[in-house]
Simulated scan of single mutants.
Amino acid sequence: MGNYDALVVVSFGGPERPEDVLPFLENVVRGRGVPRERLLAVEAHYQRFGGVSPINQQCRELVAALEGVVDVPVYWGNRNWHPYLTDTVRQMAADGVRRAAAFATAATSSYSSCRQYIEDIARATREVQDAPRLVKLPHFYDHPGFIAAMTDRTRAALDEVGEDARLVFTAHSVPLSMAAKSGPRGGAYEAELRAASALVAQACGTGDFDLVWQSRSGPPQVPWLEPDVCDHLEELHAQGTEAVVLVPIGFVSDHMEVRYDLDLEAAAKAAELGLRLARAGTAGTHPRFVSMIKELMDGPEPVPCPVDCCVIGSGRPARTPPTG
């Protein structure tokens, strides 16, 4: 068992004021050579929503829900914006925490969804004197709690547009090179997302579903996972599909990509095509998702990832990674 004396939710972070958007994005891409015009384009996405990402408020709600379930103090720290993880670890040390479970708000294996969290946790603990040991909890893409939460969200969306709707699961696209190096044997990112999608589809009574990608960024000459969700909607329309449920299986809360790429862009594409469309909710604070985190804490000690797992080398692709 874990025997932790605290839990820390480790998330991506996001701006909560218009003037914070560009500094936040500069934090996200620092050292990656992302062109200024790309940052300004992404900034415009945030400004359409008042400069506020939904992710921080959803983290607050998750922390509040966890406080009613776990019997240890619950903290929260971000990788890219306030409250920064290093500041949170400093507070944990001051509070006398010695060993804490770290729950990263990403379910799968890849550099962006796992290895980078491990690196940031290690960096934060190095920078704090007498820092507690943080043990990253394992991946949960196929955990019954996550699947149950996403099944409920998907069924609710099916109720909106009809049981005949095509299930289309979405996740953040990544470069093919990153996808190929995910997990100890490679290819884990796509395989895990496909497995999670199959479990949710099966729980909804069907074996038919599609897994597509969203939020691609980076230079056009670099190949990324495809097809794009909007391109896929066009293909489904051409095949005679009349209704679609989009299920953001790759996100545990409403990131800006979910709000912008699905609720705006994909919804506009569906309206243009005359498709009935509903978007399933993310796991958020679903009771089964919250109880899943406690189950992960109470489970066996996580096995550390191999040192070369999900490592993409020094030549990181110039890209805008998942943003809050």
Rank of each mutant, 00 (worst) to 15 (best):
D5L: 10
L7G: 00
S11R: 06
E16P: 07
R17C: 03
R30L: 11
E37W: 14
R38D: 15
A41Q: 13
R60S: 14
E61F: 08
V63R: 09
G77V: 01
R79Q: 11
Y84W: 07
L85H: 01
L85Y: 00
T86W: 00
T86R: 12
A93Q: 00
R98I: 11
T108W: 12
S113Y: 08
Y117T: 04
I121A: 07
L134R: 04
K136M: 15
K136H: 12
H139G: 15
F140V: 05
H143L: 09
T151V: 09
D152N: 07
G162S: 10
G162W: 03
V168Y: 01
F169D: 08
F169G: 03
S173K: 06
S173Y: 01
L176V: 11
Y189F: 12
E190L: 03
R194P: 00
V200T: 02
C204R: 00
G205D: 08
T206Q: 03
W213Y: 12
Q214P: 03
W224V: 00
W224H: 06
E235M: 12
T241V: 14
V258I: 15
R259F: 11
G274L: 03
G274T: 10
A278T: 04
G281E: 09
T282I: 02
L296V: 05
M297P: 01
D298I: 07
V303W: 10
D308M: 04
C309I: 02
R319D: 14
